[in-house]
Design a protein around this nucleic acid. Structure first.
Lengths: 336, 336
DNA sequence: GCAGAACTGTTACGATATTTACATAAAGCA
DNA sequence: TGCTTTATGTAAATATCGTAACAGTTCTGC
């Protein structure tokens, strides 16, 4: 979750779907060209020649593509292959580029003109359609169905939609209001695994508002923090199975001080739920020895966006200031 | 669907490339006319109007077609719908008829010209190819559609499926192999925002294998780490817009030492891509002033699962050991 | 900050596609 | 068989498309 490159424009207008910020494709051109060579020498990129399907060709040449070409490639892949089965004019329009750009991209992947390109696209499609196996059931179309990536995708989508079905948006809004209330301090705590996720929330929340504190990863240092926590303050705690005893004890102590607790947990719910004012439970099961944090991340980001939205007056100010500081440090690649 | 006038198999078997059925055009006119009445009286045929898909329309109007039109219809159904996604000239040729015949048939099934007809064909195809889940109206059923949570869900879902469409699973597998190779050290680096995410990878990878190192968050300490990095080692670097100069420089130095670089970046690709052996790009746009890390998390988890899978012999051992240690510390709540 | 390179879109032209009008061929019917 | 109706293809016109050359713009490197 980086600060968006173009800063001012869309930062002045953070949650606005109707008028989405224009993507910035600020990869250095030269870099891209260099990379073509580099990659080719390392054998990743196919020659950019004629072998392979169109998608594969696009993927392997993506690094050599220019901004406009990438936009076009994205549009094609998004509606593959139908987006390419129209006239070159319409195709260009669907990628919001000009027709010559289409030609140039096509030539880069080793085809000789639009009609031949389209012919290949049709042949591929015919091939796909006459293949009895329904390829479109898979998430990553070219990976085998049983490939980790497809099984993971399946599980993750289920987790996400399940969690969304279960969440009460009023609770969500209440949590947003709690976090947005400037008159209270916010403390964030995570466990062994969830620590990084808690940290992610911390990093962002820090920009949005003042008085945000992250508890150190070593639980032995937590009691000290209690001294700074007062009635009405907010503790956001992450506890995902296996639920950690230290976290619970800490939450108990905080609750005893009349600190409000918001809990981010899983579907089985940490015992901290009993102490918490509100909890959000995310589905976490994936085909792996671990649990997934993807849905938890989703909720964190949605929360941040909502808080940011609510505090827009102050936040925009803070973000602009941050923007200025970051620019001054010259920490980032040049902006377009 | 009409009672098949000529009783051939080709209509019942529309998608069959390898052995395209011979179109039968020797049907008696007279018979066809008779059957029209029969079918209509039995109410099977729709009026021959505009409703339904192209195949359906063709089938229900088949008896009203002339010989040449049937030849054309047969050719289309034999290679449905790809045969119709070419120019009218070619389409006519594939049915061995003239172009006006194509026009006439199209008008008979209630379309206004060749382009509109083809458009419908494409839309149908898109419908077939597109994932059923993609048409999710609302994610959190009880929240208003324009609620942050729904708009965020929409964006995240798109990000995830887009990213999955673009990823080359062979690249994914190569990365897994790189990480799983025990004979090299693994270093993980993240930027200002991505640091927490890098840390998440670190936490998990540590369990799965030995010799995993996380670079400190302060970039001034990175050069020291370089001393420990040798040819053949692996550097996993997270760089999401705005791309950080320090990260690039560090990657450059690592590359100079023949360290293999795997890059986790966004769709616009960090310039580090030029130095990287492989990159994974995740879609990151959400309706917020920030970018989303959800997809990146997804890939991390999928990677960990895949590596874990590959190294299962050793990993299971390590995990059991870890389990024992954690139990001994009594850090967790009792297991259910 | 400036020169040069690279990228991108606009324009124009030749080629192709679509459509209409019309002539020819085939089929139906007495 | 010969007349009428229907079906089909040919040819010309019109619109659209694909492509190449060019020029404006943005980016890069010194």
């Amino acid at each position: 979750m980086a600060v968006k490159a173009q800063g001012t424009t869309d930062i002045a207008n953070p949650v606005n779907l109707n008028d989405p910020p224009q993507p910035l494709d600020e990869v250095e051109r030269k870099t891209a060209h260099k990379s073509t060579e580099t990659d080719e020498s390392s054998g990743i990129n196919s020659s950019g020649g004629t072998g392979g399907t169109i998608v594969e060709l696009i993927r392997s040449n993506y690094i050599g593509f220019t901004r406009a070409e990438r936009k076009l490639a994205d549009a094609l892949i998004a509606n593959y292959p139908v987006a390419g089965l129209v006239s070159i004019t319409e195709f260009a329009k669907s990628g919001a580029v000009s027709t010559p750009t289409v030609l140039r991209m096509i030539k880069k992947i080793g085809h000789n003109g639009f009609p031949p390109f389209q012919k290949v696209l049709r042949e591929e499609l015919q091939e796909t359609l006459s293949n009895p196996i329904a390829k479109h059931e898979r998430w990553s179309a070219d990976a085998p169905e049983e490939h980790v990536i497809n099984r993971f995708a399946e599980a993750t989508f289920n987790n996400l939609s399940q969690s969304l079905k279960q969440i009460d948006y009023k609770v969500f809004d209440k949590i947003v209001a709690l976090i947005a209330a400037k008159d209270r301090n916010v403390f964030i705590a995570g466990g062994r695994i969830t620590h990084s996720i808690a940290d992610y929330l911390f990093t962002h929340l820090q920009v949005v508002r003042t008085d945000v504190n992250m508890l150190p990863s070593s639980s032995s240092l937590w009691p000290h923090q209690l001294l700074n926590m007062h009635a009405g303050d907010l503790l956001v705690v992450f506890d995902i199975r296996r639920y950690e005893i230290d976290l619970y004890k800490f939450a108990e102590l905080a609750a005893a001080r009349d600190v409000q607790i918001v809990l981010m947990t899983d579907q089985w719910m940490s015992p901290i739920a009993a102490l918490a004012r509100y909890s959000i439970n995310a589905r976490i099961e994936v085909p792996s020895g671990w649990d997934s944090a993807v849905v938890t991340m989703f909720f964190i980001e949605a929360l941040i966006a909502a808080v940011e939205n609510q505090l827009w007056e102050e936040t925009s100010h803070r973000m602009q200031e941050l923007e200025g500081i970051l620019n001054a440090t010259q920490r980032f690649q040049k902006q377009p």
